[in-house]
């Protein structure tokens, strides 16, 4: 009877609509938060095991349970094949600690890109073979072109287009260019029973 069983799909689809490829490498899954409707393609690597070891003083004083989230990802994000998300790390009060990596909604991460940012806003498009350095802060509606190297600690303001090695501001997102960041349609084109892309 087991041969009648439907073949296992390439993706695991969760109740909240996340599509996680079976061939993705998620280390420390308990510390990775997915907001829902997020696509994780094969060969993606997320380092959830690199958690924060030094707690913020306010939390330590309140005696609250430590928040161990290493990587949090919003809704409708798309992580392309071979990209790697890892939390940034730095010395803090005499010890080395990692800090959480926060990603907003509708964020596209291209193939073979390595992201070590502190914060990525919503509606951000990161091309392929990009390196986002440690503790970079990327605001909303930003487009990072292919092959860009965003240096550590860089802050990219909203509505900018950056490119180069190291990254420089090369333009602004035009007035009507906001809809291009929407990833709902892209989300439907992958998964175990994908819909064709709208023409």
């Amino acid at each position: 009877m087991s041969s009648r069983r439907a073949p296992r799909g390439e993706y695991i689809e969760t109740d909240t609509g996340n599509k996680v490829a079976r061939k993705a490498t998620l280390v420390g899954t308990q510390n990775i938060m997915l907001g829902g409707k997020t696509v994780i393609q094969p060969e993606v690597m997320i380092r959830g095991d690199l958690i924060r070891t030094a707690q913020a003083p306010s939390q330590a004083a309140a005696g609250a349970a430590p928040n161990n989230t290493a990587v949090s990802i919003g809704r409708y994000c798309f992580l392309s094949r071979g990209c790697c998300l890892r939390p940034p790390g730095r010395p803090y009060k005499g010890a080395f600690t990692f800090m959480p990596l926060r990603i907003g909604d509708h964020v596209f991460v291209g193939a073979s890109t390595v992201v070590q940012a502190a914060t990525i806003g919503s509606h951000v498009h990161i091309g392929s073979k990009v390196v986002v350095g440690e503790f970079a802060i990327i605001k909303d509606y930003v487009r990072i072109l292919d092959g860009t190297i965003v240096p550590p600690h860089m802050v990219i303001p909203s509505f900018s287009i950056v490119a180069g090695q190291p990254a420089r501001l090369i333009g602004e997102v035009p007035e009507g260019g906001i809809d291009a960041f929407e990833l709902r349609d892209l989300y439907k084109t992958v998964g175990n029973n994908p819909h064709p892309a709208p023409v």
């Binding site: 095991d49 690199l50 958690i51 070891t53 790390g89 010395p91 005499g94 010890a95 080395f96 600690t97």
Partner: peptide
């Protein structure tokens, strides 16, 4: 020195 600290922490984490 910074790297030694980083290694100290990674040894506990990995």
């Amino acid at each position: 020195k910074t790297m030694a600290r980083q290694i100290d922490m990674l040894r506990r984490m990995i």
